[in-house]
């Protein structure tokens, strides 16, 4: 199915979860947070949260900022 991860169109299997999207984004092992369609998905819920075609997934981590 087609969805976007960090604004980039991606093709993931139809049964993909948030955990799969995080892996596809090559996120660092810690300090990561995820929003799907603007809503926060807690880390503990990543493996059980199914994605749908057209979802906007944001995978975020620490960056320098004042």
């Amino acid at each position: 199915m087609q969805l976007t991860i960090n604004g980039v169109p991606r093709d993931l299997p139809a049964d993909a979860t948030v955990a799969d999207a995080v892996a596809a984004a090559a996120a660092p092992p810690r300090g990561v947070a995820v929003a799907v369609n603007g809503a926060v998905v807690p880390r503990g819920a990543w493996p059980a949260t199914a994605l749908a075609a057209g979802d906007r997934v944001e995978v975020l981590s620490a960056a320098q900022g004042g």
Binding site: N6, V8, A25, A26, R30, S61, A63, Q64, G66
Partner: peptide, 19 residues
Amino acid sequence: VTVALRRVDAAAGQPGGLL
């Protein structure tokens, strides 16, 4: 210290290094 939250690809130059 302050830290920001950005897309992982934008922070790719320093994966995990800042934390």
